[in-house]
Amino acid sequence: MRFRLLALLVAATQVCAQVPDSGRWQELRFPAEEVEQRAGDQYIEQTVSLAAAGRLDRDKALLFRARRIAEGLVRAAVALKPDAKGWSWEVHVTDDPAVEAESQAGGKLLLGSLFAGRLRLDDGELAILLAHEIAHIVAEHERETLSEALLDSRRDLPLDVVAERLASDVPLQFRLSRLSAIQEREADQLGMLIAYRAGWPCSAMLTFYRKLAADSSATTILASHPSGTTRLSLAKGMSRLLDD
């Protein structure tokens, strides 16, 4: 009886949603507010830790550029997903070498200054990178991944338990790798659309993904990002589509 009640509660909170632009259907089993609250807490913990280590927002010029560019991208994203207007968007930069670019639910962005510097990104190319991360947020990929991990467990579990399992369970990560690959391609495509609607030229898509392809390191069995050449091919196709 208890298991049946838990199953009914999970079913009651399940939401079917569509990713903006692509229209792909998602099963979202955790409330958006709960996922956003957890992501916000993690972001605070991460940025506080980076600040304590002297690795947060030291590159003031890049921080200013990123925040200025992100403002226009967020406006374009809100037009695709009106709920995004109510999120607490934040942008920080770090010189932690482990960080390239990251996003968390609810509008949290973290940009790696060493990565941006290594690729020598101009404003248009930086816009494409940030738009990719914004696309992950707008498409609610974090919420979807956690929901799929819950579905994989075949029983009701709290969000924190599912998140901890997802972070440490390699077989589970492998089972969800196909979803991750779909999400990465989706973020590339949706990100390019967001950047275009924010006024950035298609040429920026091509130069960014050319640089990324040239910089790509060896992939692993769990790598979720498409190859650099695949992403460049997508950028060429999107550029032709948007220019028509």
Rank of each mutant, 00 (worst) to 15 (best):
Q18A: 15
Q18K: 14
Q18S: 12
V19R: 11
V19F: 00
S22K: 04
S22I: 09
W25I: 10
W25E: 13
W25L: 14
Q26L: 11
E27Q: 11
E27F: 00
L28Y: 05
L28A: 05
L28M: 10
L28S: 04
R29C: 11
R29E: 07
P31A: 10
P31Q: 09
P31N: 09
A32M: 08
A32Q: 14
E33I: 06
E33P: 01
E33G: 03
E34K: 11
E36P: 00
E36D: 10
Q37P: 00
Q37R: 14
R38D: 13
R38Y: 03
A39I: 05
A39S: 15
A39N: 07
A39K: 04
A39V: 04
G40A: 12
G40P: 07
Q42S: 08
Y43Q: 00
Y43W: 02
Y43L: 02
E45N: 13
S49M: 07
S49T: 12
A52F: 01
G54E: 05
G54P: 04
R55Y: 01
R55G: 01
R55Q: 12
R55M: 06
L56R: 07
D57Q: 06
R58I: 04
A61K: 09
L63Y: 04
L63A: 13
F64E: 14
R65V: 09
A66P: 04
A66H: 02
R68V: 09
I69N: 09
I69F: 10
I69L: 15
A70W: 00
G72T: 07
G72N: 12
L73D: 12
L73P: 08
V74I: 15
A76G: 13
A77K: 00
A77H: 00
V78T: 13
A79P: 05
A79E: 15
L80G: 04
K81L: 11
P82V: 12
P82H: 07
D83S: 13
D83R: 13
A84E: 06
A84G: 10
